[in-house]
Each structure stands twice: as C-alpha cells, then as structure tokens.
C-alpha cells in the first residue's frame, strides 16, 4: 500500500526560558535562563494510506510538534518528511487542499456566524462542487446527527456540537489525511460514538488516513496502530493489540467466595479484597493453569468473572513508569 506519510530521523528542538529565583520579585522576573528542549529526537515512521493511527504520549512528549511538522506549519531542524508525496512546509498550500485538521480548542468555525457559513466558506476555498458539497453535507449531518444544529450561531452551540461541526468543516473536502487533536473532548457519549463510527466508516469507505492525537482511551480503540512518544523519542510503534500484550498480557479475575476471601493466592497478585470478594491480576496463561482450575472447581468459590486489562490501565501504568524514570533519572526501555 502506498504511504501517506513517510518521516525519517526527524529532529526538532526549541529554545525556551525559565525564570530564575531571586530575592526580590522584580529581579526574579528579570532573571531567566535559556535552554534547549528536544521536542523531537530522531523520530522515523511511515503510515500507509487508509490507516488509523493513534499518536500517544504524555503532555510535552512531542505529539503536537510532530503533528505541526506533518501539517506543514512547523519546520524540523533535520530529517525528512513527505506527506502524500509532498514536502509539508514547501508545498503547504497544495498539502492544505489534501488534508483536514481539527486542532482541539482552535476551531475552524466563526464564533458569531452559523457553522453553515464556515462549511460554505470551506466549500469555496477547497473548491468543492456544489452538488458534491450537498451530498457530503447530508452524509455528515446524518452520521453525526447534527439535524439543524449547524444552522445555529456557533456561540449558541454546546462544546460537543462545536466539535462535531469542526469535524464536518475539516472533512467536507474529503481530505486524504485527517489530523485530529482530541476530537472527542467535551463531547457527550452518543456524539463520541457517532464521531468514532464516522471516522471508522470514512476509513473503510473512502480510504481516509487518520492521525489521532488523544488521551481518551476509547478513541484509541478505533486505531489499528499506536505510535507513542516520550520526551521527543518514539518509544512504541505497533498495533494496539501488541501494546496491550507488551504492557498488559494479564487478566483480571474476580472471585466470590463462600465465606471470607483468602488474603493471598499463589497464582496471581491480589488487587482488591473485600469480605468474600477477591480481585486478582494474573498472567494470561495462568487462567487455564491447573491451580486456577482447582480453585474455581472448589466448593469455596461460588462465582467468578474474567476480564481483560483495559487500555487505560496499561497507559496509566506506563505513564507512571515514565514519571518514575524521570524522577530517578533512570532509563525505561520497552
């Protein structure tokens, strides 16, 4: 499959400042120290067309910098990048015609005008024929259950409605790649589901590539692939399933005992214990072990359930590990 994005050895560092402590408030505000922050450090990857990629990382990990470089509004210090075969910053206007971007808080809508005006504006600047525009608009209005909402002034819309309208505004020209930064922030549950379903459907029907920057675990669920950054370095690049395996090839077992639950069992780690209920974390393979079978068959266990370790648990565990590494100055390798 042809690559939508090819990035090789991208590096970007920013000069930044921090105030120095002084005895007087005024002097303290004047004294500051400059230093360089490595926002991207030798990042390479490629994204085939039609893939949904989740770009993950803690705050300040380099996600936004990478997105800005991919969209052409930021230059890398070194390295190569081609997006749809174009150099993003040299061919920014040509690339703009082929991509859609939703940057969280910074919407494409006009605050005092109805969203329909922004749609019409985008129709004209992206040169979408009127009949095509009408078809696409009714498709998005239907999929995202927008009804007549888009005809209202943006300032009268809820955050979720604004988000959906921003998404429509960015996709009316049917871009080949859509960059989404926290697309479901502030969106109610039905709208979140509608947005996710629309993203998946656009990928299936039109082969649209999505680069999804998010902290919301449910958004990641629609991604086929996860790229994780930390301190500007790529620390993970594989399928979502492999991320789960790498960090969480574990299962949760909840056991309900006839009488008081034991304080420990040998096949797993006790996560919670409450009267006759015990929650364990066990290695995946331990579920079918002899010891587990014996325990479940025993008369002491009245009921049990098995569940997978969810992505939010994996990510919070990983982020905690990264934080610990930062505090201790140690290294963490996947």
């Amino acid at each position: 499959m042809e690559d939508a994005i090819v990035a090789g050895n991208l590096r970007k560092r920013f000069k930044t400042h921090e105030s120095l402590r002084g005895k007087k408030v005024f002097l303290a505000s004047l004294r500051r120290r400059s230093f360089y922050k490595q926002a991207l450090d030798d990042v390479s990857f490629s994204v085939p067309r039609g893939q949904i990629v989740a770009l993950l990382g803690k705050n300040g990990s380099g996600k936004s910098t990478l997105t800005k470089i991919m969209t052409g509004i930021l230059f890398p210090d070194s390295g190569e990048i081609r997006v749809l075969g174009l150099n993003p910053w040299k061919d920014r206007i040509r690339l703009a015609m082929e991509i859609g971007v939703v940057l969280g808080a910074h919407g494409q809508l006009f605050w005092n005008l109805p969203a329909s005006d922004a749609f019409e504006y985008n129709r004209r600047i992206y040169e979408v024929p009127d009949s095509t525009y009408q078809k696409r608009l009714s498709y998005f209005v239907d999929r995202l259950e927008l009804g007549d909402v888009y005809k209202r002034q943006v300032r009268q819309m809820s955050l979720g409605e604004q988000m959906k309208c921003n998404f429509v505004s960015s996709c009316l020209h049917m871009p080949k790649i859509v960059f989404l930064d926290e697309p479901t922030i502030g969106v109610d549950l039905p709208s979140k589901l509608a947005l996710r379903e629309t993203i998946s459907e656009m990928q299936r029907r039109f082969g649209t590539t999505f680069i999804l920057t998010t902290h919301i675990v449910e958004d990641i669920a629609i991604a086929e692939r996860v790229i994780m950054l930390d301190k500007g370095k790529k620390i993970f690049d594989d399928t979502k399933e492999n991320l789960e395996k790498l960090f969480g090839d574990k299962r949760y077992i909840t056991l309900k005992f006839d009488g008081r639950a034991p304080s420990k069992v040998k096949m797993g780690k006790v996560l919670e214990r409450e009267a006759n209920v015990l929650k364990l974390e066990v290695p995946h393979r331990a579920i079918k072990s002899r010891a587990m079978m014996d325990l479940l068959d025993s008369k002491r266990v009245m009921d049990y359930s098995v569940s997978e370790v969810d992505l939010s648990h994996i990510l919070s565990k990983l982020y905690r590990k990264l934080d610990r590494r930062d505090r201790t100055g140690g290294r963490y390798a996947t």
Partner: peptide
C-alpha cells in the same frame, strides 16, 4: 495559537 489553524487553510 489560532494562527496554527489559520496557517492550515489553503
């Protein structure tokens, strides 16, 4: 930061 969105237009 809205300059970013503005710069993304064609």
């Amino acid at each position: 930061g809205s300059i970013g969105t503005a710069m993304l237009k064609p």
